[in-house]
Simulated assay, not measured.
Amino acid sequence: MPRSLPLLLAAAVTATACAPRAVDAPAPAGQPVRVQSYSVAGLESVIGRTARVVEGQFGRPELDLREGAARKLQFAGPACVLDVYFYPPRGGGEPIATHVDARLPDGGDFDRASCVAALGHKAR
Rank of each mutant, 00 (worst) to 15 (best):
A102F: 02
E44G: 10
H121N: 11
A25Q: 13
V84R: 04
C115M: 08
E62Q: 15
S45D: 15
G120P: 05
D101R: 02
A113Q: 05
Q74N: 13
L65A: 15
S37K: 10
S114H: 08
P61M: 13
T14R: 02
S39Q: 08
A29Y: 15
A117R: 15
T14D: 00
G93V: 07
P95W: 01
A118E: 14
F110H: 10
V81W: 02
Q57P: 04
R103G: 07
A76L: 11
A19I: 00
G59I: 14
P32V: 05
A17Q: 05
S45Y: 13
P6H: 07
K72R: 15
A123K: 01
A12Y: 02
A15I: 05
V84K: 05
V100W: 01
A102I: 07
L65I: 14
R52N: 14
L5E: 11
A70E: 12
R21A: 14
P6D: 10
E44S: 09
V54R: 04
G107E: 09
V46D: 02
V35I: 15
V84S: 02
E55F: 11
P61Q: 11
A29V: 12
T98C: 09
V116Y: 03
A17G: 08
T14H: 03
H99N: 15
Q74V: 15
R49M: 12
D106W: 02
T50I: 03
G108F: 01
S37Y: 11
L5D: 03
L73D: 01
T98M: 12
A113C: 06
G92I: 06
G68F: 01
A41W: 00
V13H: 00
C80A: 08
G107I: 04
V53W: 00
T16E: 01
P26L: 03
L119H: 13
F58Y: 11
P88S: 08
R124Q: 10
Y85I: 10
G48T: 14
V40F: 10
G59W: 09
L65S: 13
D109I: 07
I96C: 03
E44C: 08
R66W: 07
R60N: 04
D83A: 02
P26S: 00
A10C: 03
L73A: 06
C18R: 05
C80D: 04
L73M: 05
E67L: 08
D106M: 02
R3V: 11
L65F: 11
R34N: 13
D106P: 05
A29I: 11
L82Q: 00
A51R: 08
A79Y: 13
V116C: 00
A118V: 13
Q31M: 09
V13P: 01
E94H: 02
R66D: 07
A51K: 06
L63H: 13
G91H: 06
V81I: 15
A17Y: 03
K122M: 08
V81K: 14
F110D: 03
V40C: 10
D101F: 00
K122P: 01
P95R: 12
Q74H: 12
G77R: 01
A12R: 00
D109R: 06
P20D: 02
V84E: 04
V100E: 02
A22F: 11
S37E: 14
Y85A: 14
A117E: 05
G91P: 03
